[in-house]
């Protein structure tokens, strides 16, 4: 597996370096935003059409209103395409001997630190879209309250279980 790993993928999951996630994460995010915005847009459009059918405005006013709504959703689409790139640049994870660190956020930034000894259990999850792009997510659960769940998504499929094994001090054969 190590032979075809891309250069940004760590050789060991616990090398104390800060790593970006798989660049596929950007595409994944964009797809997600696209789907969300489309659903929202369809609902918004239906609502707008019903609303325009009910009010007694002139057709010019109606057209302007419709254009405004369409413009709003276009802006949402564009934002949904741009923000994943910015978010990707700010998204880093680090796993050293004792802690997992996750850094994210464009404007509102948050760095989360989870000591290995506080981890109660972990999940490795993979949704249908993630499966398509060969990425998976590592979800770490602690006994905390507001930050009880810390997620690292966009990890290459092979890496998430490796990280989990390291966090839980499992030997590779135990996890298979």
């Amino acid at each position: 597996m190590a032979g075809k790993d891309p250069p940004w993928l760590p050789g060991r999951p616990d090398d104390a370096e800060e790593h970006p996630v798989d660049p596929q994460w950007i595409t994944l995010r964009r797809l997600g935003n696209l789907i969300r915005t489309t659903i929202l847009g369809l609902m918004g459009l239906t609502g707008t059409l019903i609303f325009l059918g009910l009010v007694g405005w002139s057709s010019a006013a109606k057209l302007t209103f419709l254009a405004g709504v369409a413009g709003f959703f276009c802006a949402l689409y564009i934002l949904g395409m741009i923000t994943p790139v910015l978010a990707y640049r700010r998204y880093r994870w680090r796993l050293d001997g004792e802690t997992l660190l996750v850094r994210r956020g464009i404007w509102w930034r948050i760095e989360t630190l989870v000591p290995k000894s506080r981890i109660q259990h972990t999940d490795v999850t993979q949704g249908p879209l993630e499966r398509l792009f060969h990425t998976s997510s590592l979800v770490v659960h602690t006994a905390g309250t507001r930050f009880a769940i810390v997620e690292v998504d966009g990890l290459p499929t092979g890496l998430a279980p490796k990280m989990r094994d390291h966090l839980l001090d499992l030997r590779p054969d135990e996890s298979l």
Binding site: V114, R118, V150
Partner: peptide
């Protein structure tokens, strides 16, 4: 349990930050 350092754009402008200390 978990430590989280938070910064909003306003925090950055005022050179401040928030630290969350999460317990069970």
């Amino acid at each position: 349990q978990v430590v989280a350092l938070e910064e909003s754009p306003f925090d950055r402008r005022w050179k401040m930050a928030n630290v969350n200390v999460d317990t069970a």
